[in-house]
Every structure is written in C-alpha cells, then in structure tokens.
Nucleic acid binder design. Structure first.
Length: 224
DNA sequence: ATGACGATTTACT
DNA sequence: GTAAATCGTCATA
C-alpha cells in the first residue's frame, strides 16, 4: 500500500525488509532517529529462542547534555545512565518508579549522550507470551492487543526487557535488535504526529519541546 | 545513613 | 479526574 493511500486507513504497518540496522544508521541525532524508528520492528529473542516483536509506533528524543529532561542533562554521568555515553546502536534500559523499565536506542557519537525512547509498539510476534509477561497466566479477561505495548514500561514488561539488557548491542547482539534497514522515513509527514514529551513537566523550558512522535490513528500508541 | 525523586501504570472516585 | 504502588538511584551529610 502506498503511503498516500495509508493516510486514509486507520493504521497499516508499512512494508519493511528483515535486515538489521548497521551501526552507521544509529550515528545520527536523537530527533532524526526517533522519526526514523517509526514503522521499524523491535525484536526480542528470549533465552530459549522464542521471538517477540512489534512495530515501533511512538518515540521520544532525548537530545543530550543541553536537554534538561534527559537523564544526561548537564552531562550527568552515573552508573545508571552510563550506556547513554556508549557507542551508537546499543540499548539504554533504566529502572524507575520502583517497578518499571524503559528502553532507549542510543545514538550519535560515542561519548555524546543521546537516545530515542521507545514508547509504544504494535505487537506482531509472540502476543500470547506478551500477555503472559504482562499479567501472569491467569486473568479474568485477557489484555486486549492494544494494551500490551502501549507505553514505555508496558512494552518492556511484554518483551521481558530489564537492566540485564542495558548496553546490549543492537547491531551484533542476538537478544534485542531492530529490523527494517531501508533508508529514510517509512511514513509521510502527514501520517506522523509531533508533540511534547510525556512525563517531563519539571524540565523547565524543555518540557514543552516537541520531541515526541507517533503514528496517527494507531490504537497502540500510549496516548493521542 | 538518610531522604527525595522518578522519561509509569493501575485502580479507583 | 486523583492517588497509590514501590524501590533503585543519587545527592547530601
């Protein structure tokens, strides 16, 4: 389906190849990466080989030392956020609120902290396992598909992503990676919404910066 | 050693 | 709409 035709539909995943991203595709700034990730497939291979995946439909950019909403604001560097300073193409997984994990894709040059937060997926492979990971084996009514990965902590729970995957290499590793290596954006501008980031109200002037992107009319995003 | 906080989610009024 | 859950992490002492 052409991008133009897709704008008339509620949401259709764009065609992609199954090629993994090479390192150089991550050597870009976080805003660029955040947009380019949309439509690509995040793949998680569990111990034992089971494959879980979903299309990335919502992202946020955390730009670097100058970005007061970022964990690396003012070049703050601690054991927790060390991987933000690592080479492009690794994961930054952090733990927050005493119970949740979130996953970022580290980008830009090594030593220059920047990353794209993955905020939502349209789940593709392993939905039963995701449901189990999210709620356990028993539940009165099973979670609906659009409740599985519609938030940064939800998708980590669904895909079993935790601090063990912090700094995991998305280029050469075999536990977490991104597929769909065609160059450029997979969407027309009109198919993508751009808005302020979520949960960064205390970041002063940076709180309102439009650094969140999501696929319009997609039921799997965290919010519209 | 201590205290405050958090790139969230869920349940409840 | 509001509030609770829950604890690693970091700054301060």
């Amino acid at each position: 389906m052409s991008p133009a035709a897709r704008t008339r539909q509620a949401w259709t995943a764009p065609d992609i190849d199954n090629q993994r991203w090479p390192r150089e595709m991550f050597r870009i700034d976080a805003a660029e990466l955040s947009q380019r990730l949309l439509g690509r497939r995040l793949v998680r291979i569990l111990d034992g080989g089971e494959r879980l995946s979903g299309r990335i439909v919502e992202t946020e950019a955390y730009l670097g030392a100058q970005d007061l909403a970022a964990h690396c604001a003012g070049n703050r560097r601690t054991p927790r956020n060390e991987s933000m300073y690592g080479p492009p193409g690794i994961a930054y997984v952090y733990f927050t609120y005493g119970m949740h994990h979130c996953v970022n894709v580290v980008c830009a040059e090594e030593g220059s902290p920047a990353a794209a937060l993955i905020r939502a997926l349209a789940p593709e492979e392993g939905l039963d396992r995701m449901r189990h990971n999210r709620t356990g084996p028993r539940r009165a009514s099973p979670l609906r598909d659009h409740d599985l990965c519609s938030g940064p902590a939800k998708l980590c729970q669904a895909l079993a992503i935790d601090r063990a995957l912090d700094s995991a290499d998305l280029v050469n590793g075999d536990r977490l990676f991104i597929e769909g290596a065609d160059a450029g954006s997979l969407f027309e501008q009109a198919e993508i919404a751009n808005a302020a980031r979520i949960g960064v109200d205390s970041a002063g002037s940076w709180a309102k910066a439009p650094l969140r992107w999501y696929v319009k009319h997609c039921p799997h995003v965290s919010r519209d």
